[in-house]
Design a protein around this nucleic acid. Structure first.
Lengths: 239, 239
DNA sequence: TCCGTTTATTTGGTATGATGAAATATGAAA
DNA sequence: TTTCATATTTCATCATACCAAATAAACGGA
């Protein structure tokens, strides 16, 4: 009865709700991993129709502030740098279909890791190097098991992303892994390839140990270039 | 863990429509900058209710595939790397409120530009350097006009992002600019500061000219560190 | 004939009520 | 107490309706 949107020039009632819930999440009123109130409750709370509440919910879902499985209650998710990756993924996936898309992203990855290994060579702490060593050993142990090796491989690279202590880097790594995984997954793996990759990792590690940024960078470039060559020939891309 | 986005077990009617329209955009049936059919037409075309059509539209909007102003017809937008930045921005803005948020992002920027200037020193072409020079001259001419200088300042940095020829970089630059702008905007500007920044740019340019990556990187770090110092003291942040 | 203004029609934003199905809570039987 | 069947909540979707803004059409003056 009555009540047809009070705000005169106010556009989009849903935005109000979105903003409010955002605040509630930020201020901790809605804790992470807890379910959102039911739609009926929300329409009470905001004096809006289910239509609007629903729209707000989908918007929040798309922004990654809540996780929204088909028939379940939406659950709150505290924002993190990983959230960015998640919300970005659909668009990125579009770009990957584009010619050059994979290459562009891969080049970006190479660019970043070049910087990472340089910095590692220059500034890595004792414990950082310890972690690298551990990751390396995991590599070696998994050479015969390609599935296992794949995991330990990405783990090795992840260590590099963790060294700067900036959470943006690990998130970026997650992004690269999930975006480029579709290509990587379809490639055949073999102990021989694993062996080669392991050797490459060792070279990088050695250069970092010796505090030689140029050598580290060179080793990394050689490593990733070889990997790309393999992808390229497997899928017969042009670049 | 990432990776969902698929419709797994839940069949949401809207997802079908989203997927279909995505295809229509990708295949060129729906050209860029053209308006979407009206909601009523769409519900005819897909045999769905308006609720569902609407949900699909907001989803597409949130994914950045269409631009959706409040009372106007949604217009199709061909995906580009800038789209990623757009869709990401809301989430990023959240993160900026977090302590360290700005610093983390700024550090990321420094990291990337360090790599960029190194590469510029090593691989920049004649025409790249020409562009840098032009940007530099624009800087100099704008020293007395702080507003103008700000624009030419970001333009100078943008040139660095364009040198690799990878569209991901310029998009990233756009991101940094729009994300960090809120802080930057509130800082007072002066010809003296402009002068100092111009000098810093010159130093970077010189190092690139001399093909000295280490010097270029050092000059850039000094430049951006000074800028951060200024931000830090202005807003009395901790780091 | 052309252009600005008024009127009609379309269309987007929101509200209600209803329905089927899945998820959860409830309670009874083993 | 555990288990299973039933009741209830809640989500997904549909249909309908209304208002207000945007667009198209009609109109009238220069």
């Amino acid at each position: 009865m009555s009540e047809q949107s009070g705000s005169a020039s106010g556009h989009r009632a849903a935005d109000m709700i979105v903003a409010d819930i955002e605040k509630q999440i930020a201020s901790g009123v809605l804790k992470g991993a807890s379910p959102l109130p039911s739609e009926r409750e929300l329409m009470e709370e905001f004096g809006a129709s289910r239509t609007v509440v629903r729209e707000a919910i989908t918007a929040l879902s798309n922004r990654g502030l809540i996780e929204c499985k088909p028939r379940y209650r939406p659950i709150v998710r505290q924002v993190g740098y990983e959230t960015v990756i998640d919300t970005t993924s659909p668009v990125i996936r579009q770009l990957l279909h584009e010619p050059q898309g994979v290459k562009n992203l891969y080049d970006m990855r190479v660019f970043i890791e070049r910087g990472l290994v340089r910095d590692a060579a220059l500034y890595a702490s004792k414990s950082d190097i310890q972690e690298l060593k551990a990751a390396l050993r995991a590599n070696e142990d998994a050479i015969s098991n390609s599935d296992e090796f794949y995991k330990s491989d990405t783990a090795f690279h992840r260590v590099l992303y963790c060294i700067p202590g900036n959470p943006v880097f690990p998130a970026t790594h997650e992004g690269f892994v999930s975006w480029l995984a579709p290509q990587w997954d379809r490639m055949e793996r073999s102990p021989e390839r694993n062996q080669r990759n392991y050797q490459a990792h060792v070279a990088i590690y050695q250069a970092i140990l010796e505090r030689d940024p140029d050598a580290a960078e060179a080793a990394l470039v050689s490593h990733l270039k070889a990997a790309w060559e393999f992808v390229r020939t497997t899928f017969s891309l042009e670049n």
